[in-house]
Design a binder for these strands. Structure first.
Lengths: 355, 355
DNA sequence: ATGAAAGCGCTAACAT
DNA sequence: ATGTTAGCGCTTTCAT
């Protein structure tokens, strides 16, 4: 059946390395072009020929070489995901959403870890990103990066920034920190709390600073005095230590707004150590709505952050940039919503909401 | 200074697209070879020439095109990370470790998400992996995949499997599930518990099955009768529901071994709902040692799983395979250790350990 | 120390 | 419907 004409390279032997398009062409007795057409599902190939080529592809285990394709097309069909630490609920979920969204668009996601944020001097590490086999970059900052302004100059690749200072002159997608934090603080206010403490993430984090700011302004709007912000590092451990100190220093507040759920757990732990109850003695609100929030004891009231939407938006924005859309430097803010569970309740004694 | 001789393509205008090695060569008045040598840090270039080339590289913002490099070298310097869901503590931490380890080796990590595990029929999806621009693949299963045997036949790429049935004929890296589960169950046994329930992950998961098996054998070794395993899906919610049912159906056990920390939290939640205390009435052990384990209330006794080591080992194994080492199909089992915190204690009333 | 030529595997453009 | 030519950007010979 198959006209297995002998070629000098002995096609009958087992395949060394990988079969190229020429091997298939020789095996099927057609030109490389025809193989290419079959491999790419072009229509203008006679069914007989197509079948023969398909057989040869099978027989030789041929797979197109993506490097050659990339070289030819000038595209990689891959987007780069740059982050300083993956070990964060938000970053991880964002990555997950990005990976799924880009896969749907036929793109692959390449991780470009930058071990040390401060090492990200623009001249050095960043320009190296251009060599990577990616068509565009999603930069998840979650922390400050020096001289970002030069980025635009240095980086010759489409760029979308996630979780960042929305003042930056780039296309940005982020959770609406202000809206979310307002929700949390006003919830406590509505429950009658007047003495509310905020335990925040690290200074270096934009979102942490934004949440702390909103805590202060919302308190001010209510005509209340904000307590000094307790600055942690997102970890439950840091919140635990901070809250212990707080209790050691003076009377406990009636409510705590924690910068994330992890820290909320740490706060709750410290409250219990002190012999107090949640929410009867102290109410606690978190931020993120991580999986454990629903099953902690008590179930945590928290601000739900929609990382999936952040990731999907960032991806589609980047993809359109890659497709040549002009960079309009849009800021997309993804709204949050409050999930009220059992860690918050009305103040036990003291002023009741005006009603 | 610079002999900016005019070429037909008007090099003086702003760079359309990207500067190639030829543009730099023309700009510096040397051959492409010399540029290549400078770019790759070869020594045999006269300092004067080198400087001139370097200047041109700067001026034109030249970055080597990785597609061309890849095509030439036949390597991508990237490893593929295949998983069915990233949204798992273990997978995420493993990915993190893989990304870091491969970055250190000068490799990039490419995410190859497979949305539906059951869709991973070998003939289809898997052979497509070969087209990806990767030199090898780390497959994180955490669940069963049909006809894996054909994998070897189909996949022409170095492969390391993580978190899997260690019986498979591949190079495998995994947490030592047996050792870990033994630690957990024997810890409860040592505390005098005799009535221990196991809440497991889903049947489809190898590690879940392995942990359940070890629970049964360890109980048997102690001459005790195992309770029917409560099969959940790793989520706290599932454990919560399962434990509620358990309590509704009969007398509570004195201890629970949960298949992971999330489920342990769900179990604890259910115990409390029932008006019982942890660990006074019921002891609970988890598995993973996730961050929240240390700060949950009470702090969770759990089996620490070293995902970092799993990821690092998988990476170095894969890298050596890529470098041409023969596939010896080693099984590397990473040991765990027990972290005793506050969720376990001696049985209140009942048999005391023989001593 | 430097350059010229060839080719990695693929596909767009142009024949036939 | 199929084949031929050329070239993507780089690096490995092999000169010089």
């Amino acid at each position: 059946m198959t006209p297995a004409s002998n070629t000098p390279s002995e096609p009958g032997s087992q395949p060394k390395g990988r079969a190229s398009i020429y091997d298939v062409a020789a095996h099927a007795g057609v030109s490389a072009q025809t193989v290419s057409r079959v491999a790419n599902g072009q229509t203008n190939v006679r069914p007989t020929t197509r079948d023969r080529v398909l057989e040869s592809i099978q027989a030789l285990g041929y797979r197109p070489n993506s490097a050659a394709r990339n070289l030819k097309s000038g595209k990689f069909r891959s987007i780069g995901f740059v982050t300083f630490n993956l070990a964060t609920l938000g970053n991880e979920q964002t990555l997950n959403a990005v990976a799924e969204a880009s896969e749907k668009a036929g793109y692959t996601t390449t991780l470009l870890p930058v071990t040390d944020p401060t090492k990200l001097d623009v001249a050095g590490a960043f320009s190296r990103l251009e060599e990577q086999a990616v068509d565009g970059i999603i930069l998840v900052m979650s922390a400050e990066v020096g001289s970002l302004d030069e980025l635009k100059v240095t980086l010759g690749l489409p760029l979308v920034i996630v979780d960042s200072d929305a003042m930056l002159p780039y296309t940005i997608v982020d959770t609406d920190q202000e809206q979310g934090s307002g929700l949390a603080v006003r919830h406590l206010l509505d429950l009658g709390h007047r003495d509310i403490v905020h335990v925040s993430g690290p200074e270096i984090s934009f979102s942490a600073r934004r949440r702390a700011e909103t805590y202060r302004t919302t308190m001010a709007e209510a005509g209340l005095e904000a307590r000094p912000v307790l600055v942690g590092d997102w970890s439950a451990q840091s919140a635990l230590a901070l809250t212990r100190e707080l209790f050691a220093d003076g009377p406990p507040p009636t409510a705590v707004f924690a910068g994330n759920d992890q820290m909320a757990l740490g706060v709750i732990h410290a409250i219990r150590e002190r012999g107090l109850r949640v929410p009867e003695d102290v109410s606690v609100v978190g931020f993120d709505d991580a999986e454990e929030a629903a099953v902690s004891w008590p179930a945590l009231t928290t601000v739900h952050q929609n990382f999936d939407q952040v990731g999907r938006n960032a991806t589609s924005l980047l993809l359109s940039l890659i497709d040549g859309a002009p960079d309009t430097r849009r800021k997309v803010l993804i709204p949050t919503h409050l999930v009220v569970r059992d860690s918050t309740g009305p103040v036990r004694s003291g002023p009741v909401p005006s009603a």
